[in-house]
Amino acid sequence: MPSTTPKIVSFEDTLSAFFAAITTVVASSIVSLPLQQALISLYNQNPLPDICQFALDDESASVAINQLKKNLRTCPPEQVKLLNSPLTYLLDELICNIQQHAQTDKGYAYLHHDAAQHCIDIAIADLGITIYGSYVAAQKHLDKLGDSDAEALNLAQNGYSVKNLPDTENRGYGISSNMRMVVKGLGGEFAVLSGNALLLYSQDTKKILSLPSEIDFKGTMIIVRIPDQVPNNFNLYTYTS
């Protein structure tokens, strides 16, 4: 274990390890898995195989989405069928967010089915301008934003978009609708790390952590864990409008 205070650095060559580690930590919830483990993994730079990097053009994004869904091959076929719509919705919207807001040229994604734990871990990340940076770049909602990544996360989870049409709130569904779908609809957990803020949302808790200065992720990462069984009463459309 490193003797100095661990520092999360968002260089690309360490991203995959960080990605894997933080995914495990946050997705598995918020459940008491120690953050140190993530940081140690970061230091050791253990890459995971289910991570893909993709350019943000349409074709690359589509290929990435289809490639990620193939990682469901260990799920029972009937569940793969049921999972297709919500997972496609989640991946589409979050990758679309990177295209529209992150001001970067590529994204990273991870999808892993853990058959033993009966869950699916997903993460979508970019090394872009962060959610806070996106509001500032668009000069939107600055009155509510202050200088805080945490306030920016709060706005995003409430669906405040930087790109609404003048007379309607037609945008801002990417994070807000997926949060509700994952937690309320699928019984999963949802986390967003952006800059030095971390939003955690599960059945039991919803909170935003303003992180200590050692942790500053230069980009945005969305981390999701969902059960590999879709509830019988799940209806995607409940969450899309």
Partner: peptide
């Protein structure tokens, strides 16, 4: 009109990694 949650999500300021761990658990 857009429906938004009427309850605020608390923002918790963590000064140390220890605080983060506490919040995570």
């Amino acid at each position: 009109p857009r429906q938004r949650s009427t309850t605020d999500t608390p923002i918790i300021h963590c000064e140390t990694i220890g605080n983060v761990l506490q919040q995570l658990s």
